[in-house]
Simulated scan of single mutants.
Amino acid sequence: MSLYEHMIHLYDKDIDLYSQKSCLTAKFTGTGYGGINMNSYRILEFKENTLFEKIYFKSWVDDIIIFTKEVLPEVLTQGINTPKLIESKEGENFFITYFEYLELEPLNHTNFLNEATDIAASIANVKLDPAIEFPDGRLHYHKSSFKGKLDNLKKELTPYMSDISNFLNTVDDYINKNVRKTLNHGDLSERNAFKNGKVIDWDNFGLYPLGYDFGKTIGMSEIYKKNELSLQDYLKIEDMIFKKVENLLTRELLEISLPYFTVIFLRHYRVRSRYNDINSISRELLELLKNRLAKLSKVGSHDSL
C-alpha cells in the first residue's frame, strides 16, 4: 500500500480503494481547485483498461450520485464526448469514482471560444428526464460562488451607476422568469474542454438559464487575459452563439441572458489577471443590456453609465 493509499484509509477505513499493487501503474495527474473533492487525481492502468480516479468528500454524495446515475447516462446517450463511469465506491467519509480515461488534446487559444461554445450548445440540447430531482444548489446558481461575483460587480460599478444593484436584480429576475433552463456544465474552461468535443469534470453542473455556460466560457477565455474584449468583439461572439442555440430560445432572450452572465464572469476572471480598464467593457455591456431590457420589457430608465 502506498503512503497516499494509507492516508486515505486512515481517514476512511471503510473505503475500498484500488491499491497501487492491483494495477500495472498508478500515477498522479493534474490538480484541482474545487472544494467538493480531494483535488488529487490518479491514472490507474490495468491490463484491460485505464481508469481515472477521483475522490469526493461524502458531504457531496447526493450531487455526485444524481449526476453519475441520472444525468451522465443521458449525456452519453445523446452524444456528448465525456468519460463513462466505470465504478464507484462509497465509504464513511469518501465517495470514489473511477471514470474511463480519455486521451485529451488541448484546444488552440485562438479557436477556443468557437469549439467550447459548440460543446456548451450540445450540452444545452441534452434532454433530461423531468422526474430527476436535482439538489437545490444545482437549480439555483445564486447558491454557488456566483453571488459573490455579482456582489463584487455591484460594488465596483456603483460610482458609475448608482442604482446598479436594483438594475441587476431586475435583470436577474427577468432571466429566471423568462429564459429556458437547460443543462449546464458549469466550468467549460481550457482545463475541461478539449479537441474533438471532449469534455471532463462536471463538478459544477446545474440546470440553469441558457446563457450561463456561454457567459462563463467567454469570461474564462485565455485569449482575453492578454487582449481586451471590445464591444464589437462581444457582438460577434453573441451572433456566433445564437446560431448554435436558436432552436432553444429567441434572439431577444439571448440578448439579455448572455451579456448579463458575460459581464459578471468577465469582471471576475479579468480582475484576477490584472485586466486593463475592466470598468470600460463592463459599463459598455451593462449599457447594452439596459437598452435591450428597456426595449423588451419597458423597464424604467436607469442612471447613465
Rank of each mutant, 00 (worst) to 15 (best):
Ser2Ile: 09
Leu3Met: 11
His9Thr: 07
Tyr11Glu: 02
Asp12Leu: 01
Asp14Cys: 02
Ile15Arg: 01
Cys23Pro: 05
Ala26Cys: 10
Gly32Pro: 09
Tyr33Trp: 11
Gly35Pro: 04
Met38Leu: 11
Tyr41Gly: 06
Glu45Gln: 14
Lys47Thr: 14
Glu48Gln: 12
Val61Ala: 06
Ile65Gln: 12
Ile66Glu: 06
Lys69Pro: 05
Leu72Pro: 03
Gly79Pro: 08
Thr82Gln: 04
Lys84Glu: 07
Ile86Val: 15
Ser88Lys: 11
Gly91Ser: 08
Glu92Ser: 15
Glu92Leu: 07
Thr97Gln: 15
Tyr98Asp: 07
Phe99Lys: 00
Glu100Val: 00
Tyr101Asp: 02
Ala131Val: 15
Asp136Tyr: 10
Gly137Ser: 14
Tyr141Val: 15
Leu150Cys: 04
Leu150Pro: 00
Met161His: 09
Ser165Asp: 14
Asn166Ile: 00
Asp187Leu: 06
Lys195Glu: 14
Lys198Ser: 08
Val199Lys: 05
Val199Thr: 15
Val199Ala: 04
Gly206His: 11
Lys216Cys: 02
Ser221Trp: 09
Glu222Ile: 07
Asn227Cys: 06
Ser257Glu: 05
Leu258Thr: 03
Phe265Cys: 08
His268Gln: 11
His268Leu: 06
Arg270Met: 02
Val271Tyr: 12
Ser273Trp: 08
Tyr275Trp: 09
Arg283Ala: 00
Arg283Lys: 13
Leu285Cys: 07
Leu285Phe: 03
Leu286Gln: 00
Leu286Phe: 11
Leu296Gly: 06
His302Leu: 02
